[in-house]
Amino acid sequence: MPAPTNFRGRLLRLAATDNVAVATVNFAAGDVAPIDDGQIAIIDAVSMGHKVAVAAIADQDKIIKYGCPIGSAVRPIRVGEHVHTHNIKSDYLPTNARE
């Protein structure tokens, strides 16, 4: 079944304390994505399932998703930026990347 045409997607914040939210569709840079009662201007293109900063994050701040830390920032991250392996790192084990 194709995706419903009226489905616009949003940023899904999984817990109130999260500083990232998940894209439920692909967003392009410059899109304005709905979140809860508001909206966020998307800075980088993000694919579905990827994370976007919904609060300003300082270098070494914890990244919070599901209400739990999922790693730490390795540089400052602005609201609307894609949050991924290029700007956060694990507090446990290094992430294995394809070369």
Binding site: H50, K51, C68, G71, V83, I88, S90, P94, T95, N96
Partner: peptide, 25 residues
């Protein structure tokens, strides 16, 4: 840690998971 990396495949990162603990949750 001894083996060099966690249970994390490159496809996990393509799909939006950034860290082992995010995948774990």
């Amino acid at each position: 840690r001894v083996l060099g990396h966690g249970s994390f495949a490159p496809g996990n990162a393509d799909g939006g998971l950034s860290t082992q603990e995010e995948k774990s949750l």
